[in-house]
Design a protein around this nucleic acid. Structure first.
Length: 587
RNA sequence: GCCCUUGUAGCUCAGUUGGCAGAGCACAUCCAUGGUAAGGAUGAGGUCAUCGGUUCGAUUCCGAUCGAGGGCUCCA
């Protein structure tokens, strides 16, 4: 198909467009802030950034001027020219740019490409658009300034990064800004506050979650379901201590390779005890308490285990990144012959759980043995493990990506990411082989030939952590939970004070039937109560007046605005019970 | 931890070019008899994050600390 000329001009890949914008921004910055050194400026998912070293600190107020200068450059229709030079020539050209010199030193010998537009030139592999006219003056927006270490290394200088959104057209930019506005409305911290679900308290310690009554309702329902599903799928549930003596963590190796993630020890009877960052060593203590026959395997042991990990203060974020959290952990201990079926089963189980929660799109990321000699375990075991992971993915027909060398030193893994209602991906599930701990704790089972053998051990968390899952689910549902997880399932609203008694009776009947309900009997007007209930995302609002009282019915308003025909109280109870039983996602 | 921003009532936010601290919502009391997204009046509520400095005087300016927000390879 032939495109009009203008369409051709726009048909550069968006990554190329973003990268060209970043050069334009660098030109603008150099012009407005002479003496600034440039570092790197790549395209990213929704735009681009460029890292600079400014002679004086850049303020957010400086961004509009930069944006304006960029528009001027764009409308000036400046061509991008590619120039090829030798390494020595390049070093001469960028003699004043220490970061560029370092980059040049890192390049292979041979020709080096430079891109020039106007007075600005940059070391760059390219490609770029033809001229600045291929960029739209209204399809980008400078977003924020942020600190970023040169080459991501905290031992190197802190540079100033300018982030920007950039797209091929104004419409795409606006659509993206709209998505961001929607995401902001769903922010777990905001909804947690508005819906009275949880809080954090700086005076009591950041990164620690306080679950309020309504958050507690959600959690109890979620955990009850989780336990039922685990018992129904061949798991046993464990409870283990929150602290353990240093012997445990020395044996596990955590004090060797995970110490920065652990809190300082407390001394009890002259021994050092550490609060647990992981549950695995405790589960192994239970395993090693007895001699195990191959006949007992596989063992699937799960625990809602609360762990504490040190996270740097700058990384804490609402429910998503905290310092104390409850993993929905499990360890599967099995023979080599069983491993393939066990992996397939845990993957099937994960997908079943996610589907029940309403996640439709799920993608797998398969991480293999890291390069170098840091990895533990026999390469043959890695191969078997990887094969079982790959087969399980194939069996479930799951889309997946390879993450070569992305495995932990102790084993390969599958991570599952779910796509939420806004199309964002969240990692929840991780299924990891562990070739390290069985060795360190000398775990064994007696095989059919009477020999002691080493079992396979797999860690897995389905929801990840209850806290983080709560955050993801809040953002996915915007706080409008399915009925079985809703902290309040219904409210009863009398149209006036005369009907308060009937409203109270209805609420009492519903409560007796197991419905989470509250009668709204304050002296507010009915409209105000409906508004409150809507804002609290209560699934059902039961409005009662003379008609309902006389007929023993309720008028049902649904959270989505639908109005159901008036029904007897018993019929409403039946409806709710059926939806809860089915864990329906619809009301 | 580091860079930038930021901290005023339970919540969302104004404000003081350094001179008695403000609004809306929420809360309390009263009035209002009401049918599907905010009825009205009155009242209570703050050591302006904390500590120090400058100043006749600091919530305001400066510094430090603590927290929060946006970032800084990976990881629940």
């Amino acid at each position: 198909m032939l495109l009009p000329i203008e369409e051709y001009r726009m048909s550069f890949p968006v990554q190329t467009i973003r990268h060209s914008y970043s050069h334009v921004m660098a030109e603008a910055v150099i012009k407005l802030h002479p003496g600034t050194k440039v570092a790197i400026g790549p395209a990213i998912d929704d735009g681009f950034y460029y890292d600079f070293l400014f002679p004086e600190a850049l303020q957010p107020d400086d961004l509009p001027a930069i944006e304006k200068e960029m528009r001027r450059i764009i409308s000036a229709n400046v061509p991008f020219n590619r120039v090829e030079v030798s390494k020595a020539e390049a070093k001469a050209m960028f003699a004043d740019e220490p970061f560029k010199l370092e980059l040049i030193d890192g390049l292979e010998d041979g020709t080096i490409s430079i891109y020039e537009q106007g007075v600005f030139r940059d070391l760059c592999r390219g490609p770029h658009v033809d001229t600045t006219r291929d960029l739209k003056p209204d399809a980008f927006k400078l977003r924020a300034i942020a600190g970023a270490y040169w080459r991501g290394d905290e031992k190197r200088p802190m540079l100033t990064r300018i982030y920007a959104y950039a797209f091929g057209s104004k419409a795409d930019l606006e659509a993206h800004l709209k998505l961001l506005a929607e995401a902001e409305k769903r922010d777990n911290r905001k909804l947690g506050k508005e819906l009275g679900l949880f809080s954090t308290h700086e005076e009591a310690g950041p990164g620690l979650i306080y679950w309020h009554p309504k958050g507690g309702r959600f959690r109890v329902e979620l955990e009850n379901w989780w336990r039922d599903e685990h018992y129904g799928n061949g798991y046993e549930i464990l409870f283990t201590p929150h602290i353990g003596k240093s012997w445990l963590w020395e044996t596990s190796g955590h004090l060797g390779f995970y110490k920065e993630g652990m809190y300082s020890p407390m001394e009890i009877d002259e021994d050092d005890y550490y609060i647990k960052p992981m549950n695995c060593p405790f589960h192994i203590m239970i395993y090693n308490n007895d001699v195990h026959s191959y006949r007992e395997l596989p063992l699937r042991w799960a625990e809602l285990g609360t762990v504490y990990r040190y996270e740097r203060s700058g990384t804490l974020h609402g429910l998503m990144r905290v310092r104390g959290f409850t993993q929905d952990d499990a360890h599967i201990i099995c023979t080599p012959e069983q491993i393939e079926d066990e992996i397939a089963e845990v993957l099937r189980f994960s997908l079943h759980m996610h589907k029940t929660l309403g996640f439709k799109e799920i993608k797998a990321y398969l991480a293999t043995r890291p390069a170098g000699n840091g990895a533990v375990g026999d390469p043959a075991m890695w191969d078997t493990a990887l094969e079982s992971l790959r087969k399980a993915i194939g069996k479930e027909g799951l889309a997946y990506e390879m993450d070569e060398g992305g495995g932990a030193f102790y084993g390969p893994k599958i991570d599952l990411k779910v796509k939420d209602a806004l199309g964002r991906e969240w990692q929840l599930t991780t299924i990891q082989f562990d070739f390290n701990l069985p060795e360190r704790f000398d775990m064994t089972y007696v095989d059919s030939d009477g020999q002691k053998k080493r079992p396979y051990m797999v860690h897995r968390a389905l929801l990840g952590s209850i806290e983080r899952f709560f955050g993801v689910y809040l953002e996915h549902t915007a706080g409008a939970f399915p009925i079985w997880l809703a902290p309040e399932q219904a409210v009863v609203i009398p149209v006036g004070p005369d009907f308060a008694d009937y409203a109270a009776t209805v609420a009492a009947d519903l409560k007796k039937a197991g419905v989470r309900v509250k009668a709204m009997l304050s002296d507010e007007r009915m409209n105000a109560k409906i508004r409150d209930a809507q804002n609290q995302k209560v699934p059902y609002m039961l409005v009662v007046g003379a008609k309902e009282r006389d007929e023993g019915t309720v008028a049902v308003r649904v959270r989505d605005g639908r109005q159901l025909p008036a029904m007897p109280v018993a019929a409403f109870v039946e409806m709710v019970q059926a939806l809860v039983r089915e864990r329906s996602l619809e009301l």
